[in-house]
């Protein structure tokens, strides 16, 4: 994964260069266009930015490993919503409601378990049927979302627990709880992918599946583990977010899969598998959030934000392609 060539460096560094550009642009543009008094790079503003990145960011870490492995998971938004429903609703069950605050860890565990189980189901189907992950998770995206609606119809599911809210809003060393979760998840997944056998094998499978099989790697279990991890992370993301908000709409998490994939791809992970970096995904997540926040800062509305992000995504992919095509030719002969 290290080559030290100029093009790899560019590809690696591209996302950070992009972030610096954004910062400069919004700081300068903010001076002229912004209605608010505070500067864009205000410390409080930046801390908030990390907190707001967390829901997408935590899932994006899972998406990175699934994509490095050569798969994709479109069902994360639906898993996120379903786990949120389980989290909030379970606390109102008579069994748990009687326990007071002791119900919190149980509700968390239930939600996380749900995420793992849904992910495992995805993984199992991909493994055992050999159907493309895109198709399988397209199906489960619809299916899981259906379950969310079956649960409570069009109604939101709500339950506010003040202990939880306090926890979620706490700050430790200046960083919010959600930010800490994002950082810990990033570090954990980085270790998983760079230092463990599972990570090594996941890269190998994504790059050349046949060679991986020939090396005695059992492809199926590795894929399934990765789907379980992303299921877990989608649930974790829901747990972190809804502990604070206390209310979930059945549409929540819609299009999350696309935001997540956008962040991962911006970070340079290949859709075809075999290559990608956790740290760059972190960069991709921050870049998107900066863009959203920055455009809001200078007074653009949501539709403009989406348009700009769409354009940037295509521009980045085009750049990536140019760099990759060059790399390919160098290998070919």
């Amino acid at each position: 994964m290290q080559a030290g060539t100029l093009s790899t460096f560019l590809k690696r560094g591209a996302i950070w260069g992009f972030i610096v550009l954004e910062l400069i642009f919004f700081t300068v543009a903010g001076e002229f266009l912004s209605l608010s008094e505070t500067a864009f790079m205000d410390a409080g503003n930046m801390l908030l930015l990390f907190k707001q990145s967390a829901p997408i960011g935590i899932i994006a870490m899972g998406m990175t490993i699934v994509m490095i492995n050569g798969n994709i998971d479109l069902s994360v938004g639906a898993i996120y919503a379903l786990c949120a429903v389980v989290l909030l609703d379970s606390m109102t069950w008579p069994m748990l409601a009687g326990l007071g605050d002791a119900a919190i860890p149980l509700a968390w565990a239930l939600a996380l378990l749900t995420g793992v189980a849904l992910g495992a189901l995805n993984g199992l189907i991909v493994w055992k049927t050999g159907v493309d992950a895109f198709i399988v998770t397209l199906g489960s995206m619809l299916g899981y979302r259906g379950l969310v609606f079956m649960y409570n119809g069009e109604q939101p599911t709500s339950h506010l627990n003040w202990t939880l809210v306090d926890f979620a809003e706490a700050q430790f060393l200046g960083l919010h709880t959600a930010t800490w979760f994002l950082l810990v998840v990033t570090a954990a997944i980085w270790f998983l992918m760079n230092k463990t056998v599972h990570g090594r094998n996941a890269y190998a499978i994504g790059d050349n599946r046949e060679a991986a099989v020939n090396a005695g790697i059992r492809v199926g279990p590795h894929m399934m583990i990765n789907f379980m991890i992303i299921g877990f992370l989608a649930a974790l993301s829901a747990v972190v977010f809804y502990s604070e908000s206390g209310s979930v709409n059945p549409n929540d998490g819609e299009l999350y899969e696309l935001w997540v994939i956008t962040a991962v791809v911006l970070g340079g992970t290949k859709l075809t598998g075999g290559a990608g970096s956790i740290v760059s995904t972190f960069g991709g997540v921050v870049a998107i959030q900066l863009l959203r926040k920055g455009l809001a800062h200078i007074g653009a509305d949501t539709s403009t934000v989406n348009l700009v992000i769409g354009l940037i995504l295509i521009a980045v992919l085009f750049l990536d392609r140019q760099l990759n095509v060059k790399g390919k030719e160098e290998l070919k002969i």
Partner: peptide, 25 residues
Amino acid sequence: LILGMNCRDNMTLPQVDDLTAGPFV
């Protein structure tokens, strides 16, 4: 071969399971 991987990782691929210290390679 896994062309996108470095020489060392390619060479140890089939036995990396056994080359661990705790959870890490």
